[in-house]
């Protein structure tokens, strides 16, 4: 059985307390806001993607629990400098990790700290909120959808 220490790893608490890239970008190329109406959590995400499709800068802001804040923070650190397809692949790996599906944990690096979330299905949304907003922001077809939300 997972214990609280398994979900609330030191690195998660540390990121929740001092999130990285916690800022709006001045001239983002992509932006999306996400909200979880059930818990009221919010995240607002800016990205700058260059002509080659590489994420050169990323910033987020929001209200949320330690899991959602730390996840968004560690995501920004993990995808900065990556190409869009690389970011998507990392999201898929991360999603598998927190839902208890097999995945290449080594490729996830520090993000493996979220493995404990898999034992708590109600918290998967918290851990993936920032990621969903990021994917939504990068989605070319987004304009056709009514609204950007976390899921």
């Amino acid at each position: 059985m997972a214990t609280s220490d398994e979900m609330y790893q030191a690195v998660i608490i540390e990121h929740a307390r001092s999130p990285r890239n916690y800022k709006p970008l001045v001239t983002p190329t992509h932006h999306c806001d996400g909200r979880n109406p059930l818990c009221g959590d919010e995240v607002s995400l800016d990205l700058t993607v260059d002509a080659e499709g590489r994420i050169t800068d990323i910033g987020f802001q929001g209200q949320g629990c330690a899991i959602s804040k730390a996840s968004a923070s560690m995501m920004t650190a993990a995808i900065k400098g990556k190409t869009v397809p690389e970011a998507r692949e990392l999201f898929e790996r991360f999603h598998a990790l927190v839902t208890g599906e097999p995945t290449d944990e080594k490729a996830l690096g520090k993000l493996v700290a979220f493995k404990g979330v898999a034992a708590y299905p109600m918290r998967v949304k918290c851990a993936t909120m920032g990621w969903h907003v990021m994917m939504e922001a990068l989605d070319e077809n987004r304009e056709k959808r009514p609204n950007g939300s976390e899921q």
Partner: peptide, 14 residues
């Protein structure tokens, strides 16, 4: 300094 969801979640572990 602690979000209510984290409070509930950590209490739940016990």
């Amino acid at each position: 300094g602690v979000h209510p969801h984290d409070i509930a979640s950590i209490l739940d572990h016990d």
